[in-house]
């Protein structure tokens, strides 16, 4: 592989997680933390950063150790590695950001069972060299953060009339309280997925139309 091809591949691995294989909007993985903590933008961001640290750390470690991990116990090994990183994040947050730690509660610890992370270890880090795994983890994390911020932001704006605790609409705004309560999470993600489905369907129809036009011209 020459240098240009290599950097092209690296770019692909980095970019795919952000939109094309977005862990939340496309693969629909890691639903529990996604829905539970996104009642405000800041909580979503904190969760996203915590997950980023765990994902990048464990991807690097798994990728470095991929030749020594026996196949039969690989899942257990991944989980132990992930759990170690999560414990680190959990204790660090508790020490330095007690307010955020309290608000996210058990969901920081529950990053362990976030299927996005285990999924990346099994599907990517266990088969690829460290630097590609790092890029893959970084891309996936950015995609995850974008999705969490989008959900958290919309829910906070509609349900509380603010964004990152800055009031947007003044005192006349009647907040949609339902949006920051559990049902709001389900409904918003449902409607977002619906919107993306619709977008994809429209694009597909258009592509089909173009193809037919080309066929008519040439036929």
């Amino acid at each position: 592989m020459n240098a240009i091809e290599q950097s092209g591949r690296a770019y692909q691995e980095l970019i795919k997680g952000i939109w094309k294989e977005n862990p939340i909007f496309v693969s629909v993985l890691g639903m529990c933390p996604t829905l539970a903590v996104t009642n405000s933008a800041i909580n979503g961001l904190a969760m996203g950063l915590a997950t980023t640290f765990v994902l990048i750390g464990s991807s690097l470690l798994v990728s470095l150790m991929r030749k020594w991990i026996p196949k039969q116990v690989r899942i257990t090994t991944y989980i132990v590695i992930i759990a170690t990183f999560v414990s680190t994040v959990d204790l660090t947050l508790e020490a330095f950001f007690p307010k955020i730690h309290k608000e996210l509660g058990a969901f920081i610890a529950l990053i362990v069972v976030n299927c996005v992370i285990l999924g990346r270890q099994e599907a990517f880090a266990s088969k690829n060299p460290p630097w590609l795994s790092f890029l893959d983890a970084l891309g996936m994390s950015v995609g995850f953060i974008i999705a969490l911020l989008m959900l958290g932001g919309i829910r906070e704006i509609l349900g509380n009339g603010s964004f990152f605790d800055i009031s947007l609409f003044g005192s006349h705004f009647e907040p949609w309280v339902i949006m920051i309560l559990p049902p709001g999470g389900f409904l918003l993600l449902g409607f977002l997925l619906l919107f993306f489905n619709w977008l994809r369907a429209v694009r597909l129809d258009r592509a089909k139309l173009e193809a037919e036009k080309v066929k008519v011209q040439h036929g």
Binding site: V28, F186, L189, G190, L194, W198
Partner: peptide, 15 residues
């Protein structure tokens, strides 16, 4: 057609 799958499940779950 566009509502099928996860989107439908999530909206039902919301209700």
């Amino acid at each position: 057609r566009v509502v099928h799958g996860t989107a439908l499940s999530l909206i039902v779950a919301g209700i």
